[in-house]
Structures are given as C-alpha cells and as structure tokens.
Design a protein around this nucleic acid. Sequence first.
DNA 1: ATGCCTAACACCGTTAGA
Length: 264
Amino acid sequence: MRIATWNVNSVNARLELVLAWFEAAQPDVACLQEIKCVDEKFPTEAFERLGYNVAVHGQKSYNGVAMLSKTPLDDVRRGLPGSDNWPEGAEDHARYIEAVTGGATPVRVGGIYLPNGNPIGTEKFAYKLAWMDRLRGHAAELLKLEEHLVLCGDYNVIPEPQDADKPETWAGDALFQPETRASFRALKNLGLTDAYMEVDGSPGGYTFWDYQAGAWQRNHGIRIDHLLLSPQAADKLAGLVIHRNERDNEKPSDHVPVVVELSL
DNA sequence: ATGCCTAACACCGTTAGA
C-alpha cells in the first residue's frame, strides 16, 4: 500500500498537474495540504473519476486539507481535539484530517498541515507550539489503539541541521527553533518512526524549495514533509520515495510529494 | 536588501506562505 503526502499550495491553481501525478504515481491513499479552498470548491468529482474516495476539511483562502483513498474513508475526523473551550469567536484553522481506510488491511491516516509560526516571538509562533502540543496529545491517544497508523503531512519542522541545505539561514526561523525541534522530538518519542530516516536517512532528502532566489536551481531545500509511523506500521515499512522531479514542472507547488510503501 | 516568488481575494494593494 502506497500512502502519499503533498502540500499542493492551492489544489485548483494546479489541478491538471496534481491529477497527472495521481494517474502516474497511483497512490492508494493521499493527504493533501494547503488546498486553499472551502469544501464546495474542492474538485471532488475529478478525483472520483480517478477512482478515489474523498474527504475534505477546507477553509476560505488559506490552509485546508483533504484525504483521498481508493478504499472507503471511515471514522473521519476534521480538526484536532482541543479547540472546544476556546473563547467565543476564536476559530480553528483547517489543518488536520484523519480517517481509517485500506479496506481489508485497515490503516489509520492523519493528514497534517502544521502552522508555519513565523515570525518567532509573536502569537503565530505561540499558536504553532500550542498546535504541536495538541497534536502530541492526540497522537498519544491514537497510539493506544495499537493500529497501523501514519501521521503524515507538512510539519513545517526542520528536524536536524542535515535537513537543510544551508541550516545557518534558518537559525531565526520558526521551522528550526529549538522549541520547535524539541516538540517534534517529543512527538516522535511517543513511539513514532520517521519513515525517511528509517529507510534512507542521508542528508539532502529535501521536500520543499522556496520560489524565491532560485532556491530550486541552487538546491537550497529543506526536509519538512514527514511521514511518522506507529510501531505496527513501521514493522510493515517497505520503502519511501521523494518525488523531487515534481518541483521541475511549470507552475509547481513549492513542496513535492512524498510516498511511503507499507507491506499491507 | 527584512526582498527575491506565488496564490487568494478583492482591488489595482494586502495577507500569507516558509
């Protein structure tokens, strides 16, 4: 079973490119981030024509996540727990979607679009860290189920210096702060395996290149799209591919798809 | 040099991304 994650930076701005990738790569399950549309504007029918079941957690203009699967999506959750007692009017961002899928070989998949958090020292950075706390709490609950679990998406975390081409340029960035990295380590230390580190682990496995300053041409990339596996899923890990050629397309997303293969 | 691109929304600029 192939499970993919891809921050598409607007699904409608590059729909043909996204659909072409699905036809070629044929993921069984895929999590999309930054769809940048409300549920009604998501191109559900186009994915259904390719044989996918569709679940969407959209938002106007920004954020928004979706899950696509060749098998039905059950037990769908939209949003993380923890916004119930927020002040009146405070609205949660559309950044998390979860479902059980896979048919006869069920797997629980969470699709994550973790807040960017820049600039540091502002409420945006506090929101990022609070969101990471909520994610860790939810992950701890999910791990108790002892299922095949994949928590994948755009984590907006550079875990280690080797995950950036020029780590010194990220020193003041929310993606590479000590608190950010410590929170990501705490998440993994619940018992989750970083699939890339398990199957490869070499420097240079970047998943994002900025649009600016020729970052792609100079390979000034960072590894921020991650697939974390429960012990049950990690036992079935068979491979991982970063589809970096997608960054070479006309009008590409600034992120590329990452696909994990599980022997399920 | 706190920008360099890109997208959404609405307006001919602002906000956000990372």
